[in-house]
Design a protein around this nucleic acid. Structure first.
Lengths: 138, 138
DNA sequence: TTGCTCCTCACGTCACGTGAGGTGGC
DNA sequence: TTGCTCCTCACGTCACGTGAGGTGGC
C-alpha cells in the first residue's frame, strides 16, 4: 500500500505558505519531506503536511526553531510511546509541557500587544474629528 | 519657558525600545528628535516620546513606515486644524480613517492567528499524555 | 577629571523574497 | 513533445543586534 504524497506546490498552497518558506523550514530542520523523486522533487506525506500546519500555527509562540523542533519531536515520541503503551518518559512530558507553557506565555504577551494596538487605534479615532458631524451651519 | 527634553537613553527606557530601534525609527523618518545638543546628542520632547509610544503601539497594524508616517502626520494636522477651528480637511479625515481601518483589519488577522496558536497548544496538550495521572500501580 | 552616556560607522542575523539558469513529471 | 512545476544557487531586504572607536554632559 503506497502512501499518497504531494509535491511542494500543492503542499504550499494547502498550508498557505510560500514555496520559499516551506523550503526554509526544511533547511532549519523543522519539516523535512518524507522523500524525493528520482529527479529530486520533494515528496510530502499527509503527516508532513500536518507537521507544517502545526509549525505555522505555533509561530506566535516565538519558540526558537530548536525549541519548536524539540516540541514536535517530543510530541511524536510521546504519542508513539502512548500507542505502544511504553509510557516511558515522565521527563519528556514535563519538558513538553514546559515548552508549551513558554509558548502560551508568549501568546498572552502578543494578545496584550494587540489590545494596546486596538486602544491606540480607538484613541486616534476618538481624538481626531470623527466622520464630519452633519454641518451645523445652514 | 524652556521645554523639558530627554536624552535617548531615558526615552528608550521609558518607551521600552532599544536605543537602536529608536535610532532606526528616526532613520526611516518615523520619529525625529526635536533637537540636538551642540555635541550632537539627540533631544526628545514629551511630544516626541508620545509619538514613539504611538508608533510602538501601532506596530501590530503592519502599516508600512510610509503609511504609519502618513497616519501620524494626518493626525497631527487634524488636531492642529481642530484647535484653530480651521476644520479644513474632509479628505484628510477620510484618508486617516482608511488607514486606521486597514490597521484594524490587520489586528483582527493577528488575533485570529493567536486563536489558532492557542488551539494548537491545547490540541497538543490534549493529544499528549497529560500530567502523569496519579500512578495506578501500588 | 573621571565615568557614564551618547555618537556614527559598519558588519551580522533572521526569515524569508526574488530572479537566474536549468531540468523533471504527467 | 510541450508546458508547467520543481530544482539549486545566490543576491536582496527588512528590522534591527552588536561591537568598534571616539567624544559629549553633568
Amino acid at each position: 500500500m503506497q502512501e499518497t504524497t504531494y509535491h511542494i506546490g500543492e503542499v504550499a498552497s494547502r498550508v498557505a505558505l510560500s514555496l520559499r518558506t516551506v523550503r526554509y523550514y526544511e533547511s532549519i530542520g523543522l519539516v523535512k519531506p518524507s522523500g524525493r523523486t528520482d529527479g529530486g522533487f520533494r515528496l510530502y506525506t499527509e503527516r508532513d503536511v500536518q507537521r507544517l500546519l502545526l509549525v505555522r500555527a505555533l509561530k506566535p509562540t516565538d519558540l526558537t526553531p530548536e525549541e519548536l523542533l524539540e516540541l514536535l519531536d517530543l510530541r511524536d515520541r510521546l504519542i508513539a510511546d502512548q500507542d505502544s503503551s511504553v509510557a516511558g518518559g515522565a521527563g519528556r512530558q514535563a519538558r513538553l509541557h514546559e515548552l508549551l507553557e513558554r509558548g502560551a506565555q508568549r501568546i498572552k504577551l502578543h494578545r496584550e500587544r494587540l489590545v494596546a494596538a486596538e486602544l491606540a487605534v480607538e484613541l486616534i479615532r476618538a481624538t481626531t474629528p470623527l466622520d464630519a458631524p452633519a454641518s451645523a451651519e445652514p
